[in-house]
Write a protein that binds this DNA or RNA. Structure first.
Lengths: 137, 137
DNA sequence: CTCGGTGCAAAGGGTTTGCATACAT
DNA sequence: ATGTATGCAAACCCTTTGCACCGAG
């Protein structure tokens, strides 16, 4: 949101390194804390607050994705294009899955007069590895 | 979850009143705080901790629904059957919408070997009333 | 009588914010 | 030079938890 009014956004080293950390995270979908760890290897004096501020800014600008997970901390995603997620309720592993267009919900919302600007679907369950260790201990 | 093994769950007045408060909340989808307010009219000495404990228990038993909203507090839903939600990012109004079966995501998750046990879809946007006050101030 | 539930208050975790300083523009 | 971004630490919000007492079974 507020992607439009960006008067004097400055490009700092911290911003670059945070973006790079998310982009280089592969399928990990790191939390702010994890990003902080990674970034500290490059900029040992960066603060957690700055990491949060930059993650927020990058997400608002659409350069990265932010995945909200109930009860756990927000996870960040190098892939900003629209897609859904699966999270393992045992180990917290977060996977991308293809987006499902919520046709019925969208119809209902606009029928009610609401404007829908985004949607997020989260699948919950037990990942392959956690199923394995649960069945053969 | 854990609906089965409930050895000595006791039925207390507090539990009853919390359940009733959620059931009587109509379309409000109250937060724990709101439930606390409502319940206090009946049991002035109840504590917020007890409200949280009972909401958690009722949701675990499937008697009420819990809707996790990114960045905001959890909202509770008298309707436990499966459905999705729309939330207004301006005023926080939360509406029920019909469930959308996330076919593509489910397929991808099971192809990856994961077991999906539930899914939650949240539509975000601006509700009718907030659109109105935005366009004609 | 038992032991699960309660009230209270304090702790918890993730995230945000106020402030003086540093630095991109 | 101007004012945004930073580092630091404290504050914040929602939720959970430890403990002694209470009360449902």
């Amino acid at each position: 949101m507020d992607r439009e009014r960006l008067p004097g956004r400055r490009r700092t080293r911290q911003l670059e390194v945070v973006l790079e950390a998310v982009r280089d995270s592969g399928v990990e979908h790191p939390s702010a804390d994890r990003v902080f760890e990674r970034v500290r290897c490059v900029l040992p004096r960066i603060s957690l607050g700055t990491v949060y501020r930059n993650l927020q800014r990058l997400a608002a600008e659409g350069q990265i994705g932010a995945v909200d997970v109930a009860g756990r901390s927000t996870r960040y995603d190098p892939t900003p294009h629209e897609h859904d997620h699966f999270i393992c309720r045992i180990c917290g592993r977060l996977d991308d899955v293809p987006v499902t267009r919520p046709a019925a919900g969208l119809r209902a919302a606009s029928r009610a007069g609401h404007l829908v600007t985004s949607h997020a679907l989260l699948l919950r369950g037990v990942c392959r590895d956690c199923r394995r260790s649960a069945t053969s201990p």
